[in-house]
């Protein structure tokens, strides 16, 4: 168990470092994928199966796929030559240090006086039912707020896309507005 934890932790952290240091953005993305997979594996070892599956489904299967999709459209030789660093290391160090400190404090506080709930042995906390019940009872407000934020982001994306589409005002718009199956007949003979 400890061996596997160390394996996933070391591989995950090492590839996280690689994500930041690689010049080729495709390599960076693939190392990020490896990090996500290692985090998912640690979730499995903590018996949080739902979290693990969702981690792979959402981060590795959806978020990173969209990243790669954007990368496929990038001019790679030019992108590699771009400057990789902005000169704001002071701000970065301060922010990263504060975040790290806060994480350590939060972890320590969570584990002092921590006792497993009595039913934990028989009822694993990572089942879909347990997570669902927690989300819709104790954590319903954060859950709803998160869904509202996502909805707002979605509406925003659609509005932005619509505006650029309207600006383009393509001359062949009359054709593309037709249902797809009648388009063929409208082509000039």
């Amino acid at each position: 168990m400890v061996f596997f934890f160390l394996l996933f932790a070391i591989v995950g952290l090492a590839s996280a470092v690689m994500v930041v240091t690689r010049k080729n953005v495709m390599h960076a993305a693939l190392f990020l994928l490896l990090t996500f997979a290692c985090v998912g594996a640690t979730y499995v070892m903590l018996r949080a199966e739902v979290l693990a599956a969702v981690q792979v489904l959402v981060y590795a299967g959806a978020v990173m796929v969209l990243f790669l999709f954007a990368i496929l459209l990038v001019n790679m030789p030019e992108a590699v030559r771009l400057r990789q660093w902005t000169r704001q290391s002071t701000v970065a160090v301060v922010l990263a240090g504060l975040t790290g400190l806060w994480l350590i404090i939060a972890t320590v506080r969570a584990f002092t006086g921590f006792a497993a709930p009595p039913e934990a042995a028989t009822q694993p906390l990572g089942t879909p039912r347990a997570i669902g019940e927690a989300l819709f009872s104790d954590y319903v407000l954060p859950f709803e707020i998160a869904s509202l934020i996502l909805l707002a982001a979605m509406v925003g994306a659609i509005v932005l896309a619509r505006e650029t589409a309207r600006e383009e005002e393509r001359p062949d718009e009359a054709l593309t507005d037709l249902p797809p199956d009648t388009q063929e007949d409208q082509q000039p003979v």
């Binding site: 199966e49 739902v50 969702v54 792979v56 489904l57 590795a60 299967g61 879909p128």
Partner: peptide
């Protein structure tokens, strides 16, 4: 969920 995660 596992099946969807892997097939994604």
């Amino acid at each position: 969920v596992y099946i969807f995660a892997i097939s994604s």
